[in-house]
Design a protein around this nucleic acid. Structure first.
Lengths: 232, 232
DNA sequence: TCCCACGATTGACAATTGTCAAGCCAACAA
DNA sequence: TTGTTGGCTTGACAATTGTCAATCGTGGGA
């Protein structure tokens, strides 16, 4: 593995506090690979052989059942995914595919578990990471059960606006059909939802979004830190 | 705290491997309290002062937004809740209320965090618990996004049947309006969903459920270990 | 340049789900 | 017993969401 990738991973909160020798042990079995877009990296139901770290590009986590499919999350650099399956030595609950050309580090799960058993700092870092992930899913669950599709879209746009810097105009970061899946609706309905938000101060031109009336838009969306804040 | 409660908590996977002195330190600040039914134990948005352990009775975790409310999980003995908030020293994402008369142990969150920092075994046990919780929510998310309400009910009944021992007849363990909320639908719709399942081999008499045609019922429900298995 | 592919959009329609109001029924207290 | 309460059920209706088919528009390849 090249030194630069090594450095990037080491700087992740998950790995930054662990002992040097343990980090080295982890990296010995690890390797970095470049994947083209639309490659299925893991398949739900498979045993979790590797902890994955997205170094560049982006990865879609999704799941299928009975001919239906839904997108559960998007992983962007630099962060890991399927940590829980790795720790529990359990089957993947989700599949993962690259959304674009991506560079991904693969760390053998058994190494992660072995180091986890002997390095308290690593174990503590994993706790923090898992607690964060857990709370993120709970928020998603509340979003899904407490809001209509129109409200979910409105709050998604507000969250995305903040991530993008807070300006009134910003661009969507992925295609609408996947956004629809993330928000738990069909692409057709998303299209209508965008129109349904126009009376509350929204303009849409392709992937370009403009919130023309921030106050009115927020009055409709009713964003809530206990659902929409990413960090807490 | 009485010795018996002490013992019960010590036997939890979360606490069984930690050092004696650290467990004692945790228990020194802890106390056990009896609550009547329908008492709100914690409120979402409040700081997480205590890690809660349900020793007897049962607790409903729920959340509200914009005059809507939804039930996210039920906690039964012996297990903890709001572990993630405690660890992260963050605000509660959910409220909790007793469903019946319940005995609950309260362990100060700052003690948990302090011991977590010095006891590797405790930290590792927390990881396992959190990973388990995380995967449970992911499964709930898949259930919600991939299935119709009829399918969710059918699979819930199959899961409950297994928990109850596997017999064709069994009783629901809580009231239907709460079941409806857990399944993400209204009480009225749940009522219709029960009727809608009759053609697939279901009989309902009050809280008494009988699956008269197991094979046909499962053919409709299409249970999947990656959504419906509790342990993995 | 033209053509094709693909995602986005739209309309028409169906299915699902929620809302409201009324009625039913069992548990419980006076 | 009677009356009351609260949860459950039912019907009628409305709103939301999904499905299918057709169309639009853009960008890439021949």
């Amino acid at each position: 593995m090249p030194d630069s990738s090594f450095r990037e991973i080491r700087d992740l909160a998950l790995f930054s506090q662990m002992a040097d020798e343990n980090f080295s042990a982890l990296m010995r079995g690890a390797y970095v690979q470049n994947f083209p877009a639309q490659i299925e990296l893991i398949t739900e139901g498979d045993p979790s052989d590797f902890l994955h770290v997205v170094l560049s590009g982006s990865v879609d986590l999704f799941s299928a059942w009975n001919d239906r499919e839904t997108s559960l999350a998007t992983v962007r650099p630099i962060s890991t995914f399927i940590l829980a399956a790795t720790i529990k030595d359990a089957l993947y609950l989700m599949s993962a595919r690259t959304l674009e050309k991506s560079r991904i580090a693969l760390i053998p799960s058994q190494d992660v578990r072995a180091v986890f058993d002997i390095d308290g700092n690593f174990a503590r870092a994993i706790v923090t990471e898992l607690a964060q992930c857990y709370r993120a899913v709970i928020k998603a669950q509340k979003d899904l059960k407490l809001r209509t599709s129109l409200e979910r879209l409105a709050n998604y746009l507000l969250r995305h606006q903040r991530r993008a810097g807070g300006a009134a105009s910003f661009d969507l970061d992925f295609e609408k059909r996947r956004l629809a899946s993330v928000l738990g609706m069909t692409a057709e309905n998303l299209s209508r939802a965008f129109k349904g938000l126009q009376p509350y101060g929204l303009e849409v031109d392709g992937t370009r979004i403009t919130i023309t009336n921030q106050a009115e838009f927020e009055r409709f969306a009713k964003p809530n830190p206990l659902i929409d804040d990413g960090s807490t």
